[in-house]
Every structure is written in C-alpha cells, then in structure tokens.
C-alpha cells in the first residue's frame, strides 16, 4: 500500500509566510501591528489575527528578527537554535 502523499495547506502557508514577513519587516512595532490588521493575505484567519495582543506582536517581532533566516541568508553560528524550544 502506498503511503498517503504529504498534505499541504496552501492557504495556511500563505498566512504563515505573510505573518513572518510582517514580523520580520524593518518597521516600528505599531506599524507592524497595523500591517497585520490590514494585510489581505491574513484574511483567511482574520479572526485569529484580530485576537493578537499588540505587546505580543511586538515580542514576536523581536523573536523573528533574531532567529529568522531567509533561504538566501548565509549560515551563522547561531543557526539551528531558537528561543522557545
């Protein structure tokens, strides 16, 4: 019997990508909050995003800026560790 092919949820993937892009953006915290509240890519989970507390969006932006790596970024000695693990 063939195993099930792996599931992808493209809509969720777009939401997650838009979330990381916004949190990684070089913007002041209040502008990141505004971007999350108006980004059409996040509409499929608008209710969830609307529940976010601004202070936690600000914290998430700090985490993502510290730990996120783009595919084109050079490897660093801190790769593979992250906060919250």
């Amino acid at each position: 019997m063939n195993p099930e092919p792996p599931i992808s949820d493209e809509e969720l993937a777009r939401v997650q990508a838009a979330l990381l892009e916004a949190l990684h953006a070089d913007l002041p915290p209040q502008e990141i909050v505004a971007r999350l509240q108006s980004d059409p890519a996040l509409l499929p989970y608008a209710e969830w995003v609307a529940s976010f507390e601004p202070r936690m969006i600000e914290t998430a932006a700090v985490l993502v800026k510290k730990w996120a790596r783009r595919r084109t970024d050079p490897a660093t000695s801190e790769d593979r560790h992250a906060e919250g693990l």
Partner: peptide, 26 residues
C-alpha cells in the same frame, strides 16, 4: 517555524481548526 522565504525562525502558534488538526495529525 518555517514558511515562505524563511527556512528557520522562532516557533510560533497556529490556530486550531479542522484543517490544522488534520495537517498536524498527518
């Protein structure tokens, strides 16, 4: 902790619904 152009990040939550449960179970 990965999505779009990012191959690494800090772990972040995901909303709970039927779709995310099915995805995670697989």
């Amino acid at each position: 902790m990965t999505a779009g152009d990012f191959h690494q990040s800090a772990p972040l939550p995901v909303p709970r619904d039927k779709r995310t449960i099915t995805l995670g179970q697989q």
